[in-house]
Simulated scan of single mutants.
Amino acid sequence: MKKLLLLVGGSAGLGEALYSHYKNLDYDIVEFSRSGQQPEHVFLDMSRKETAIDTIDLQFAQLAKQPWQEIVLIINAAQIGPIGELAMSEPKQWWQNIEVNLTLPISIMGRFQTHFQAVEAPKNIAFVSSGAATSVIEGWSLYSATKAGVEHFIRVVAQEQSSKSNPITPVILNPGIMDTQMQATIRSSSEAQFSNVDWFKQAHETGQLASPATVAGNIAAVLSGKLEAGQVYDVSG
C-alpha cells in the first residue's frame, strides 16, 4: 500500500519544498492551492470558503475509499496581511485573513475527520503555525489571533481523539523564520504598519532566514517519529 500526503498550500516556499521532499519519499501527493503547477495539483482558493470546502469534501471522500499505509495532512497555506492596526485596513481584508488562516484550516481538519476517521492506517494532521501565535507582535493582530485560534482548536481535537478507536494525531509545527514570499511581504511593510520591520530586514541581509528545504526536511523527520497529539514541535532551520 502507498502513503498519502494531503498538502494544503504547496505551490511555493515551504509548501513547494514539502512537495519535493515527500515526492522523493515516494508518497502519493494531492496538492491544494491556487497556483500549483504539479501534476497532482487541485485548485483551491481559501478565500472562498464555500467552494473551497466543497472541493476538499469531494477529494477527501474519493481518497478515503482507497487503501493507505499512512495518511498525512499538512496545512501550510496562510496569509500575513493586512499588516498594521485594523484602522489601517478594511473589514473585507480582515475577513479574508480570517477565512484563509482560521475558518478553512479548521474546516479542512473537520472534513478530514469526517472522511478518514474510520480508516485504520496511522493518520497525522500537521498545522504549520508561527511563533506569533504566542507572542505579542504589533501589526500582526489578525495573523497572531488566527494562528492561536487554530492551535487551541488542535489541542481540543487532540483530547477528543484520545478516546477514538482509530485516532487521528493532530500536531502544531513552528517553522521559525524562512526565506519565503511571506518574509518578503513582511519586509515591504512600512514602520507605521509594523514597528519591527527593520529586524526582519537585517535578518534577511545577514542570512538568518532558513531555507524552506531545510524546514521541510525537519517537518518530515518529526512527522515520521512518535508524535504526541496536540503538541508544538519546533521544526525551524
Score class of each variant (00 low, 15 high):
193 Q>V: 00
23 K>T: 10
43 F>T: 12
78 A>C: 06
170 P>M: 13
205 E>P: 03
3 K>L: 10
50 E>K: 10
58 L>H: 10
212 P>F: 07
63 L>D: 04
195 S>E: 14
111 R>K: 15
75 I>V: 13
208 Q>D: 12
159 Q>G: 10
86 L>K: 06
30 V>A: 11
212 P>A: 07
36 G>H: 13
138 E>M: 09
175 P>T: 07
188 S>F: 00
143 Y>M: 05
105 P>A: 06
121 A>T: 11
207 G>C: 01
217 G>H: 13
192 A>P: 01
182 M>G: 12
89 S>D: 05
161 Q>K: 05
73 L>P: 04
122 P>V: 06
154 I>N: 05
201 K>M: 13
187 R>I: 00
187 R>H: 01
22 Y>V: 03
161 Q>S: 07
182 M>C: 04
11 S>P: 02
194 F>T: 02
118 A>T: 10
86 L>H: 06
159 Q>H: 04
26 D>A: 10
193 Q>T: 00
185 T>G: 07
162 S>N: 10
72 V>L: 12
93 Q>Y: 08
113 Q>F: 11
216 A>M: 13
57 D>I: 01
141 S>Y: 06
96 Q>N: 07
184 A>D: 15
29 I>S: 07
145 A>K: 00
44 L>W: 15
36 G>E: 15
126 A>T: 10
9 G>V: 02
162 S>D: 12
104 L>H: 07
179 D>H: 04
96 Q>M: 05
2 K>I: 03
231 Q>S: 14
6 L>G: 06
96 Q>A: 00
128 V>G: 05
33 S>T: 09
154 I>M: 09
132 A>K: 01
111 R>V: 06
195 S>H: 08
7 L>E: 11
161 Q>D: 05
144 S>D: 03
209 L>D: 09
43 F>W: 10
152 H>D: 14
205 E>Q: 11
192 A>L: 12
114 T>A: 10
60 F>Y: 11
166 N>A: 14
17 A>T: 05
148 A>I: 15
164 K>E: 06
127 F>A: 03
175 P>S: 08
61 A>Q: 12
232 V>Y: 07
57 D>K: 13
204 H>R: 11
8 V>D: 15
134 T>V: 04
10 G>V: 03
138 E>P: 02
194 F>H: 06
147 K>Y: 04
63 L>C: 00
12 A>V: 11
46 M>I: 05
40 E>K: 08
141 S>P: 08
35 S>K: 11
16 E>P: 02
98 I>V: 09
109 M>C: 11
237 G>P: 08
105 P>R: 05
141 S>F: 01
72 V>S: 04
151 E>Q: 10
137 I>K: 02
122 P>F: 03
32 F>E: 12
183 Q>V: 05
236 S>H: 03
97 N>C: 05
66 Q>Y: 00
54 D>T: 15
64 A>N: 07
177 I>Y: 13
